[in-house]
Amino acid sequence: MPEPLAPAFTAKMGPARRGPDPKQERSARTRLQVLLGAAELFTERGFRQTSVQDVADRVEMTKGAVYFHYPNKEALAVAIVEEHYAHWPKLVDEVSKEGLSPLTTAARMLERAALAFQEDVIVQAGARLQIERPQIDAELPTPYVDWIALLRSLLTAAEEAGELRPGVEPERAARSLVSAFFGSQHVSDVLSGRADVVARWADLSELLFRAIRAD
């Protein structure tokens, strides 16, 4: 005979839930469609050269339908940048589960981030919008600081594990890695539309991590 449920679990059990609301699901799909269309245009043209009408044309909707989900172009930009930043915690969680050493984890995260910059239009658009933040009349998150903090934490753990070359300071190394990574993806964007961002970062990553890794 099975044991009875623990009281804490019993308390959480309520009436059977209804299935998802088809209208809400349809609305969520439409919002995503608009967001992806806007991301493509912001990536291709930039914020200033993209209008709400352009977005509507790209997703084959009326301008009113776009405004129903996003009241203005600034709201679209903010939503894309927020989605851009929402990508990184998921990546961190996935890489953390691989059970790598701290220094290898740092390298792996940047490698995966480079792939996202090459393949994910939301990530690409978010990066361009951050560069164009002076043109956007909306508050956007401060870029780069979270990446610096994450890498500083990993490099500190790497130092404690004896993975860092003597004399390498985690804070300075983290700042340098972030500058190199985001600089390389920007150069790749300008020269090849990010088609070579993974290969470009692989070359730079090998050089940088060899410089900070203990012999």
Rank of each mutant, 00 (worst) to 15 (best):
S153H: 13
E132G: 10
A56W: 03
L140D: 03
V95K: 00
F68T: 15
E98K: 14
E160L: 13
D189F: 14
P134T: 13
R200Y: 08
K97F: 11
A199N: 06
D146E: 12
I136G: 07
V34G: 03
L208N: 04
S101T: 12
P143E: 07
L115R: 11
E169S: 05
G183T: 04
G19Y: 15
L151T: 06
F209A: 03
D54A: 13
E3M: 14
A65S: 13
S192E: 13
E3N: 15
A77Q: 05
T104L: 14
E119P: 07
E82T: 13
A56E: 02
L151I: 09
Q53V: 01
P89I: 04
F117Q: 03
P2W: 09
G46V: 06
S179C: 08
L36D: 07
L115I: 12
R210A: 15
A158N: 03
Y85V: 03
A56I: 03
D120Q: 08
A127G: 12
A149Y: 08
Q185G: 01
E169I: 03
D189M: 14
A114F: 05
A116I: 02
D57H: 02
A116S: 11
Y67D: 04
M109N: 08
E160N: 12
P134E: 09
A11D: 12
R128S: 10
D146M: 10
V81G: 02
D215K: 15
V197H: 01
L177M: 08
V78Y: 06
A214P: 00
F47R: 02
D21Q: 06
R58S: 00
R26P: 02
D57F: 00
E74F: 07
V121T: 03
A116M: 12
L91N: 01
A6W: 05
T43G: 07
P7M: 07
Q185M: 12
R175D: 04
K97A: 15
Y144I: 00
V66R: 03
H186A: 13
V66W: 01
P7N: 09
A127R: 10
A38K: 00
R194W: 08
F117W: 10
A195I: 08
P71E: 14
P22R: 10
A113D: 05
P4T: 05
E159Q: 14
L140Q: 06
